[in-house]
């Protein structure tokens, strides 16, 4: 209930109730998208990747931020490898 699951909005199904169909790993389900509209037209939400909790899309997944975090982790990994190599060569 607290973990949530990522899915993609594929269609708006009910304008007044702010309901949309999401695709979660091939499974379709209707969810409420009131929290992720962010002032946009409802149709502009189609295609969004969102995190879904108990039938509500609660956050849009920010791809740029995800890439940034992964980039930091890659750099950290490279730095660790260099440190390890320095140690192994006895000059660290």
């Amino acid at each position: 209930m607290c973990l949530g699951i990522p899915g993609r909005i594929v269609a708006i199904t009910d304008e007044t109730r702010k309901l949309a169909t999401v695709d979660v790993a091939g499974v379709k389900r209707e969810v409420n998208i009131a929290c992720i509209i962010d002032g946009r037209a409802l149709d502009d939400c189609v295609g969004d990747w969102v995190l879904i909790h108990v039938g509500f899309a609660m956050s849009r997944i920010d791809e740029r931020q995800a890439q940034e975090t992964l980039q930091i982790l890659t750099e950290l990994g490279e730095a660790q490898q260099e440190i390890a190599a320095m140690r192994a060569s006895g000059r660290g």
Partner: peptide
């Protein structure tokens, strides 16, 4: 699924553990 596997990479985990 979006950004699930990417955040389970064992190699990156090993370097994080070393840094920690």
């Amino acid at each position: 699924m979006k950004y699930v596997d990417e955040f389970r990479d064992p190699e990156k985990a090993a370097s994080l553990v070393a840094a920690i």
